[in-house]
Amino acid sequence: MSAAYPTTWRKPPQMIQSRGWRIALAIGAIAYLVLAIGSVEINWTRVIAGMERAQRFVAGFLQPDFTTRWRDISNGLMESLTMTFTSTVVGVLISIPIGVGAARNVAPQWVYYICRSIIAISRALQEIIVAIFFVALFGFGAFAGFLTLTFATIGFIGKLLAEDIEDIDEAQAEAIRATGASWLQLINYAIQPQVMPRLIGLSLYRLDINFRESAVIGIVGAGGIGAALNTSLSRYEYSSAGAILLIIIAIVMVSEYSSGYLRKWVK
């Protein structure tokens, strides 16, 4: 074979071109990992003691006990489900005007900034923190949970809806504008048909998320099945906790499957 061709080849670096930077980044990453792992304190005696509990939990998960706490479970479940549905409906209804207002191509500047900040606040605040405040303001129970989930839904749907509207086909919007249509007509004829199917898809997706969240905010007193879970875990009743977790998983699976089916049907 001709010796004219090189016999070595190295893959050129894909992301970071400079060799110095690559080395610096690698050293930095390793140093961080060493420091971070070093700061994890593990109390081995406690961990070993915990293994017995872990076994009991696994056993509880495999032999769930639905009956002993059935009243708590069914009440919590009912609260979670009703809270999920109402908060999704109200949240989506509120997020529609906010989403439209947060779309740069259809909203005036000052409306745009107001709506964007509402969305930013809603997204930045963790559901749990919001729930803590709503519980402090509105008292324990499902109503605070409903408000929390509604608030979170607004940020989620509002942002995605605004992005969708900003992505719409400008040609169609232009065409409608050229007819001298009013702003409302523009929304109705140019925007709505283009984003409606996705809005329905997003709402179904959010329904799913809201149910999962509803199982958590009960931990801080905002109603739902999370409260029952919290109680059974703090009493080390692992078979009841296992039952609740299995119910949550089952409902999430059913809702995922059926929302996938619904989404197909809507399209």
């Binding site: 074979m1 061709y5 090189p6 016999t7 070595t8 080849w9 190295r10 893959k11």
Partner: peptide, 14 residues
């Protein structure tokens, strides 16, 4: 690891 034999690399260039 992309460490092919030298003959393969030369052949690929060819």
């Amino acid at each position: 690891t992309r460490r092919y034999p030298g003959a393969d690399i030369a052949n690929a260039y060819r």
